[in-house]
Design a protein around this nucleic acid. Sequence first.
DNA 1: AATCAATACCTAAGTTTTTTAGGTATTGCC
DNA 2: GGCAATACCTAAAAAACTTAGGTATTGATT
Lengths: 121, 121
Amino acid sequence: MYICFMYSNELVKGTLKTIVLSLLAKHSRMYGYEITQHVKEQTGGKIQLTEGALYPLLHRLEADGLLLTEKVNIGKRVRKYYKLTKTGSETAGSLVAEFKEFTQTMGKLIDSFIYKPQYNV
Amino acid sequence: MYICFMYSNELVKGTLKTIVLSLLAKHSRMYGYEITQHVKEQTGGKIQLTEGALYPLLHRLEADGLLLTEKVNIGKRVRKYYKLTKTGSETAGSLVAEFKEFTQTMGKLIDSFIYKPQYNV
DNA sequence: AATCAATACCTAAGTTTTTTAGGTATTGCC
DNA sequence: GGCAATACCTAAAAAACTTAGGTATTGATT
């Protein structure tokens, strides 16, 4: 799903939907390739979406009624814009809220973590 | 992996390893059931680990050399304690650091999110 | 004494998600 | 002409997680 230089893929999983929907909530309409480039630039290359994960997700979100598409001809190429439906907009809001809540809850579990150099074996 | 009342399972995925290793970094030794109860209590029930996800992970981490086990007889029952190896301790530190870094990066993508009631369809 | 909840471990089938590794075609630059 | 970037896509495989069980002990309640 991601090619990550800074994060273990393990840790990053499960946030793609949140990223995509929140970006669409800000930009009203975006196309797939644009999303990958935007995320790469905004995060200084720390998060890089792979197209193999992104496109199937966009198709799923459309099938689930969270996104609508609009095809625009750019020369001989067809660019496929996505925008949020009402449900998509609501889902974007709740996923972002959930993510923020979740990081706080995780903080409680993790924050008191102190690196103890005394280990076993 | 989780039975979550507050979070969509989607969003929570990928943090189990971080949770488990960081808890073991704080408590020096814990057993499986204890981990589930501790997480439940510390997060006010917001994160609840399922045993179907936890036990296979503990076995994987042991196989990968991040954890060691110690069996202790409690009456007729055998309790299996886990503790970090050197590698496990190091991994715990980096996963926690990565998680913190990641939430900040996600914040940059998400923070400027404003719920726009003007949607399409 | 029987029953139920809690403690404590475990696994396996199925689903979902992601990675990997491609494919096609256009456009712009050297 | 050739290469990188733009722009879409898919399918097999791997990985992770859910679901739904299983066993057995212990302690509390009826």
